[in-house]
């Protein structure tokens, strides 16, 4: 008869458990059936009136029921949790294609980005990055580079002159290239030298789609024992390959800059068409990259560096035109117009 009470309690408890719709009902059920003052405890309390034999039987049954109900409770709780999760997944489904929550997108100017790439390449070849003044003395921009006053090579660099005189002579100018740093650096440092000099330079030049009067240049200078033109070629080829791919080729043509001997114009085969000729390279298959050469021995000697012992090379490139090609911009003047509709693309 008492066993019947256990059986009946079981039936009721299972039924109530299956009917519990949520966690709240589940908690109430637990108090009701398994709590300290719950109904299973009640059954166990009722044992006091029974015989020892009955106590044993009913007690075992009640304990078994307690275990069973606890397990059932866990299972039911799990089911309910899963159901509610499923439901919340259903109702909370996101359209993942909606735009991100916006925050300000900053960024470096494309010319800065290109300059960084070039400088990173040189840095990894052991070049230190050095800068110098943009407003220069004739002495550093021209004379120290073997371009004295009234030298015809001055026509190669149309110059902005600053309206200042030193002892009645106009001798301050906007540097026309980054090469003055060759002299400034060699005044202070002796070989081995390996520097890359980025910076702005200025040319008194009418502007059009491919000409700009303010430009960004990167210059390199290396002076050491045993450097020859092959090292110049190898260094520049290394640069081109780091920037534009391992298959790049280099071409040197004879040229003239008063501060190098021999001098060269350096081109790279076009990375767009691999040298076959395309719009990007105007059909030539080559892209003019920079001017270069072996440092003129008279410059080394004038810096107190023995040109019979040490040799060196130098190269200088303008970035704006390369950046046009690299980023697909049709007009060089766009760079310094600072239209955010352009800059925001980079």
């Amino acid at each position: 008869m008492p066993n019947d009470a256990v059986t009946q309690l079981r039936t009721e408890a299972r039924k109530a458990l299956d009917a519990a719709p949520d966690q709240g009902a589940l908690d109430a059920w637990r108090v009701d059936f398994l709590g300290r003052k719950g109904r299973l405890t009640g059954v166990l309390r009722g044992l006091a009136d029974l015989s020892i034999e009955e106590k044993k039987t009913v007690g075992a049954a009640a304990n078994a029921l307690k275990l069973e109900l606890e397990e059932a409770f866990d299972a039911r709780a799990d089911t309910l949790r899963l159901a509610s999760l499923t439901k919340s997944i259903e109702t909370g489904r996101l359209d993942v294609t909606l735009p991100e929550r916006p925050h300000l997108q900053g960024g470096l100017h494309p010319v800065t980005q290109l300059s960084r790439k070039i400088l990173d390449a040189f840095r990894s070849m052991g070049f230190s990055i050095i800068e110098g003044p943009e407003v220069e003395l004739d002495h550093y921009n021209f004379e120290g580079l073997r371009i004295p006053a009234d030298h015809p090579a001055r026509d190669m660099w149309d110059t902005f002159w600053v309206d200042e005189e030193v002892d009645g002579r106009r001798s301050i100018l906007m540097r026309t290239h980054t090469s003055p740093m060759q002299i400034r650096f060699m005044e202070e440092h002796k070989p081995p030298i390996r520097i890359a000099v980025p910076g702005r330079a200025y040319r008194f030049e009418a502007t059009d789609t491919t000409h700009e009067w303010m430009m960004t240049q990167v210059e390199i200078l290396a002076v050491d024992e045993g450097l020859n033109m092959g090292h110049l070629k190898g260094t520049l080829l290394d640069l081109f390959r780091r920037l534009f791919g391992q298959e790049r080729q280099i071409r040197l043509q004879a040229s003239y800059f008063p501060f190098v001997e021999p001098g060269a114009e350096v081109a790279m085969d076009c990375y767009v068409c691999n040298g076959k000729g395309c719009q990007s390279c105007h059909g030539s298959g080559w892209i003019e990259m920079l001017g270069a050469g072996m440092v003129h021995p008279e410059i080394l000697d004038s810096m107190g560096i023995d040109s019979r012992k040490y040799t060196g090379f130098a190269a200088g490139m303008g970035l704006e035109r390369l950046a046009m090609q690299y980023y697909g911009v049709p007009d060089i003047r766009w760079w310094y117009q600072n239209d955010l509709r352009l800059l925001n693309q980079f």
Binding site: M125, G126, S128, I130, H189, P191, P192, I193, R194, I195, A222, D224, E225, G226, L227, N228, M229, G230, H231, K233, G234, T235, L237, D238, I250, R251, L252, Q253, A254, E261, P262, G263, A264
Partner: peptide, 25 residues
């Protein structure tokens, strides 16, 4: 330079910088 430009600059091999890296500045 006269010798190099007539022989052709393309005859000059591309060499890597192999000397020790100068102290950084």
């Amino acid at each position: 330079e006269e010798i190099a430009r007539i022989i052709g600059y393309d005859q000059i091999p591309a060499l890597p910088l192999s000397a020790a890296i100068p102290a950084p500045v």
